[in-house]
Nucleic acid binder design. Structure first.
Lengths: 399, 399
DNA sequence: CCCCTTAACTCAAAATGATGGAATAAAGTA
DNA sequence: TACTTTATTCCATCATTTTGAGTTAAGGGG
């Protein structure tokens, strides 16, 4: 329930413990370590770490990996994160379909599920979710929680006309509670691009990074921004509507009322439209992925022309994102074939006037995401880990 | 020391108390209230609030405002924030000058100071600071701390060529410690636009807002972004380099290597260049403010033409910021006369395709800042309050 | 091979600070 | 005046972390 935080609450001993537990678990999720090392890194006493690790080990979330002599002194008992000790559910809700993944805590997919939706009211969709979850539950001894992602934007904004993809009845502040009773699990909700970004930082290309931008190709073009490990949300949960920034002043009209929106040039819909106009794809867009893969394999000129145009607009957009967000890197992912994303990246000509253009970079400025078609659903699953493992600001209360 | 946080640390009882103290003080800074009300709002017990308020009252930071009967029951003793109980120092360091303000905790300016700088090495500048601070100290019984702002970007980035304004020797991670020993006060450092944004949210146009964008006219064009009350920093502290996003593809060349950077069209330097080219301002730009005010008063056509161009570019930029950050509003402030900022705002034609274009807004999408020429120095002072009053994520450790 | 040093770890007591329940104070209401 | 409501205080209790004194298990020097 990330939206509209209104008031910062106080702490007490119990919340302190929960925080410390997340700190310790977060550290061990990053690397195996002995308890004394965790204590030094977190600033906690060894005693506290010892207690917390014992508790986590009792629950199976971490496990001893044996002693490892390093120098003098008694060798530490090294503990490591145990990703197979529990499972998590991720649901992606779109206007036409519901996708589910069940993963372990390391993001490894245990099973998937899918249903086409004819109605999109929460009651109906939550029923479908409960059904899929019931099937999945037989495969996992223990499910920690469920994540839920829906496309933005939320509320009545200037983008609504353009958002046939939005789910109007899905009020972010109400859904988690409904879902919790439907699934009998703790539930977290976020928007697709943000959740996908978290997943990429947890399991994928941005593993270990604290500050990065994730460019999400869904129907349009979304953006998830993670700064210091925390997602940027905005006042109404609508941060990251990258698709509707104006890339070409006086360019192609968009349903939103702007002319030259970026997603008219860089998106799955844009490439589909380009190919349909040239007779390379049926008008309903059926089989897009297969066609794209085939065209890429034979180095098709029409597709290559689209990539050139898209890469030009995308280069400017990424330069802008770099200057505004100063990410460690920008990641491209979502519903486009990996080969096409790779080609787009190869054709980028990033502007020199960027804070990301610096000496001594260890990695490229732009990377491809690793999770492919299931990006959003995996992102949903990652929400659970994010909220279970990542220390937060003092909890926000929602009113 | 906001930059390069590396590790989240654990909590203990003392940190918990410090957090709760900030929560309580933060609440009372927003509105007067009885202790029971604070307890309800923060989720703390009345006893805890009572203890913390007593401590804060002992220090003078809050003071009882008398009883206020409201309904039945014993009327609460209402406590209020006491802005005159202490003072704070704010320093703005630029390559050519050092500006100081001494304010009370409400942002009211008690005195100002100014020195031209011939050298910019930290040792020299810190000496000048200590001198100014010494003079100011006679006016305030108690100084809580000092804030320090410097222009970005930090490190060796692609914008360095363009940043004659940057201070190369000022390494953000080292300065606060040096300054603390020079001033014998707690010191916080941040970049100008970010600090100015915090000040605007604390004392100015965005008072009470949690999520907003502040467009800062310095030499170039900076941006401070506050999301959920926390500044956006980026991986290297360089988030918000708005001036060098490409506004006009293939437009005017910029020292940074890009063509068509926004600050070539919208900045103090841009309007100066426009006026110099037309013989309305001496080539050294001397007397810019007076000239601008005079030209505005007589509705000068040349200036008006600049405003039109600037407003067009600015409208697109603001639309973009809205879609990326989803702020409650965007604020324009800094080193331009209020009348010019007002005219710019009046001429904006904001794009319709924006998440900020929503029904039921209580305030305009764009506001003018309130603090004028001293914006950055006031921002520096605001840093002290931000760190004293605002609850934070578990403290970051710097390595 | 023994003893010293180093480091990890455990146990029990102490310290910190939040909480909960009972008692008290001060108002409005019947 | 008695009763209800709300704010506040007092005091004992509770949840945690920290501290300090051992204990264990390794390496290194003679």
């Amino acid at each position: 329930m990330p939206f509209r935080p209104t008031q910062i609450t106080g702490n007490n001993a119990e919340k302190t413990k929960a925080h410390n537990r997340r700190v310790v678990l977060g550290y061990l999720r990053g690397r195996d370590a002995g308890r004394a090392e965790v204590a030094r890194a977190t600033g906690l006493s060894t005693q506290t770490v010892s207690n917390l690790v014992a508790e986590l080990a009792r629950e199976g979330l971490v496990a001893p990996q044996g002693r490892r002599a390093q120098a003098r002194g008694q060798p530490p008992v090294v503990y490591g994160f145990n990703p197979t000790s529990a499972a998590i559910l991720g649901f992606e809700v779109r206007p036409d379909a519901l996708t589910m993944v069940l993963t372990d805590l390391g993001g490894k997919i245990l099973t998937t599920g899918h249903t086409w939706l004819t109605q999109t009211d929460p009651a109906h969709v939550l029923g479908q979710m409960a059904m899929l979850a019931g099937q999945a539950a037989t495969l996992a001894p223990r499910i920690l929680g469920a994540g839920l992602v829906i496309p933005g934007p939320f509320g009545a904004t200037g983008l609504n006309a353009a958002s046939a993809t939005a789910l109007p009845d899905w009020v972010p502040s109400e859904i988690p509670a409904l879902a919790e009773s439907a699934l009998a699990l703790p539930v977290w909700l976020d928007k697709d691009a943000t959740a996908a970004a978290l997943a990429e930082g947890m399991f994928g290309a941005a593993k270990g990074a604290q500050t990065y931008a994730f460019l999400y190709f869904g129907a349009g073009l979304g953006l998830g921004i993670i700064d210091q490990g925390q997602p940027l949300r905005g006042a109404f949960g609508n941060a990251g509507e990258l698709g509707h920034i104006v890339s070409h002043p006086n360019g192609l009209p968009c349903d939103c009322g702007n002319n030259g929106c970026l997603e008219q040039y860089v998106s799955r819909l844009a490439v589909q439209r380009h190919l349909i106009a040239r007779g390379l794809l049926p008008a309903d867009g059926h089989g897009t992925d297969a066609v794209l893969t085939a065209l890429l394999a034979r180095d098709d000129a029409a597709l290559s022309a689209w990539v050139d145009t898209a890469a030009e607009a995308l280069s400017r957009a990424i330069g802008m994102l770099e200057n505004l967000f100063d990410p460690q890197y920008t990641i491209l992912g979502g519903a486009l074939p990996d080969a096409l994303l790779d080609l787009l990246i190869a054709r980028l000509a990033l502007p020199p006037g960027s804070v990301a253009h610096q000496t001594g970079r260890d990695r490229p400025r732009v990377l491809r995401g690793t999770s492919g078609r299931l990006t959003a659903a995996l992102g949903a699953a990652a929400l659970v880990i994010h909220h279970t493992v990542t220390p937060r600001i003092a909890a926000y209360r929602i009113e």
